[in-house]
């Protein structure tokens, strides 16, 4: 396929460069709210890297920044040696062909069935014959175990199945990396297990690089090689999951072990209870 050539054309560095995505001094704010305040992240090639943090820390935003859908206020993001936000439209789109992204909702096109959804990127970007395309799509669907569901419409799929179809679609163009946006949220234990297995399997079998954004600690730690913990717009800590679990930082320990009280207090800031109950109403 033409994918192999694209790599050598678009990538300016040799493919053995160990860092695929390099984020330096990233600043981003939405309105008055600062979301990233100087973030440095290195995503190693061929590994599963997880980016974790409490809700609302801009994990999804980070993926959109890497994908070039949003532009940072300051700082750079390099993907495979290319500065994402200095690319022209054409180069950016060529780079995106080599990135897959799995959205939380799956983001399947509602008026196409499962088969056509997976075929969509192939139809858009390649000129494969119909029989070749069919074989490819069925192989991708087989990989996620949904070859039998090819005629279903997205509305007929469960959340977990929709994500698996979306995963097959993200894999369709044989990308070099896949970004997962909260893949485990709202899944029952079985489909959660399926997804965990799939992500790891696809990463190793297709020699992909995976970026995983999540706050499901147990599942993420089960498959991630490297974890970045983000909070308050900064990277708090990074390292292999085992190391973080026993981290010296109290905050990290609270997050990783899911403790109700700690540096992140159980109570929202408020005046003392006695004053509130028995004091004069302001």
């Amino acid at each position: 396929m033409r994918q192999g050539q694209e790599v050598s054309v678009a990538g300016s560095r040799p493919p053995d460069e160990p860092v695929l995505v390099k984020i330096r001094g990233l600043h981003f704010s939405r309105g008055d709210r600062k979301i990233f305040d100087g973030v440095d992240i290195d995503i190693p090639r061929g590994r599963v890297t997880a980016i974790m943090g409490p809700s609302g820390t801009g994990k999804t935003t980070l993926l959109k920044l890497i994908g070039g859908q949003l532009a940072p206020d300051r700082g750079t993001i390099e993907v495979d040696g290319l500065n994402v936000h200095a690319l022209g439209r054409r180069e950016l789109y060529r780079l995106r062909m080599r990135m897959g992204m799995l959205f939380q909702s799956g983001a399947l096109l509602t008026d196409l069935d499962v088969f056509e959804n997976v075929a969509y990127p192939l139809r858009e970007h390649t000129r494969l014959s119909e029989s070749m395309l069919r074989k490819l799509v069925l192989l991708k669907l087989e990989a996620v175990g949904l070859r039998g569901a090819r005629h279903l419409k997205p509305a007929e799929l469960s959340g977990g199945m929709a994500r698996r179809v979306a995963l097959a679609r993200a894999m369709a163009l044989d990308p070099m990396m896949i970004m997962y946006d909260e893949p485990f949220t709202g899944q029952d234990p079985i489909s959660m297990g399926v997804l965990v297995k799939l992500i790891r399997q696809l990463n190793d079998a297709a020699r992909l690089t995976s970026i995983l954004v999540s706050h499901d600690v147990a599942e993420t730690c089960a498959i991630a090689d490297l974890v970045y913990v983000i909070s308050g717009g900064r990277v708090i800590e990074s390292g292999p999951p085992e190391q973080l679990r026993e981290s010296g930082s109290e905050w990290t320990r609270q997050f990783m072990q899911g403790l109700p009280d700690g540096p992140v207090p159980f109570h929202y800031p408020a005046p003392a209870l006695e004053a509130d109950l028995f004091g004069e109403a302001a």
Binding site: Q69, R96, M99, F103, A107, L108, L109, T110, E124, R169
Partner: peptide, 13 residues
């Protein structure tokens, strides 16, 4: 439903 974002990430404008 993020379909537009999804298209964008599939390199489809």
């Amino acid at each position: 439903t993020e379909q537009l974002s999804g298209l964008e990430m599939m390199a489809v404008d």
